[in-house]
Amino acid sequence: MSIDLPDPIARYFAADKRGSAASLATCFSPDAIVIDEGNTYVGLDAIRQWMTNASTQYTYTVEPFALAHHDDRIVVTSRLVGNFPGSPVDLRYRFAIEGDRIAGLEIVA
């Protein structure tokens, strides 16, 4: 199923698919915050390192299949399949968008 994602979010998932931490970081504003697996990453360097660690620790694919708006967030539900404990899993990516960049992202089960 294909969904029409806002541009910053589409760029995020495209960069994630390529495993490019540098490209993924360019999707975020300079002071963006990412919350994933109980950890918080603030700023582009921390976000780049978070993606680098995730892509070297696990091999995975992510397929967005649903989009919703909740308060000031865009929530994208995606199926994540890979060599990690609990695979496959559906995750909700809660994006805060400012202009053409992601200002915040929280990833939850």
Rank of each mutant, 00 (worst) to 15 (best):
N53G: 13
L67D: 10
T61E: 15
R48G: 05
P85W: 10
R18Y: 00
A66V: 10
Q57F: 14
F28S: 06
R94S: 12
Q57K: 14
F13R: 00
I33D: 10
V42G: 09
S20N: 08
L24V: 08
V75M: 04
I74A: 04
D45M: 14
F13S: 08
V89W: 10
Y58S: 06
A15M: 00
A68T: 14
V42L: 05
R92Y: 12
M51L: 08
H69W: 09
A22V: 14
G38P: 12
P30F: 04
D45E: 14
T61V: 15
A66D: 14
D16Y: 01
G38Q: 04
I3D: 13
V34S: 07
L24I: 00
R92K: 12
R48W: 00
K17P: 10
M51P: 15
P8C: 12
A15K: 03
F84N: 01
G38N: 08
S55A: 14
T26G: 05
R11N: 09
G19V: 07
A46S: 05
P88G: 04
L5S: 15
D16C: 10
Y60H: 09
Y12W: 03
G86M: 04
V81H: 11
L24W: 02
P85Y: 11
E98W: 00
I35Q: 11
N53C: 09
L44Y: 07
P30L: 01
E98R: 07
S20R: 00
W50I: 01
L5I: 11
A22K: 03
A21P: 11
V89D: 15
Y41R: 04
R79N: 11
R48T: 10
L67I: 14
Y12I: 00
D72T: 13
R11H: 07
A68F: 06
L24G: 06
I74H: 09
I97S: 04
T56E: 02
N83A: 09
V76L: 06
M1D: 13
H70L: 08
S20F: 03
V81C: 12
T52L: 07
A15I: 03
V81E: 04
K17Y: 14
G19I: 02
A22Y: 07
A96D: 12
R48F: 05
A25G: 04
Q49V: 11
L5A: 15
V76Y: 09
S20Q: 01
Y58A: 01
T56F: 02
R94N: 11
Y93A: 05
D71M: 04
K17E: 13
I47T: 15
I35T: 13
T40Y: 09
E98Q: 14
R18W: 11
S78D: 12
C27I: 01
T56L: 06
T26M: 07
F95A: 03
G43W: 02
R92G: 05
I97H: 02
T77L: 00
I74K: 08
Y60N: 12
S2E: 14
A22T: 02
A15S: 05
T61A: 12
D45V: 11
M1R: 10
D7N: 15
S2G: 13
A10E: 10
A22I: 06
N39C: 12
S20M: 00
V76F: 13
C27K: 00
N39D: 15
V81L: 11
Y58I: 06
P64T: 11
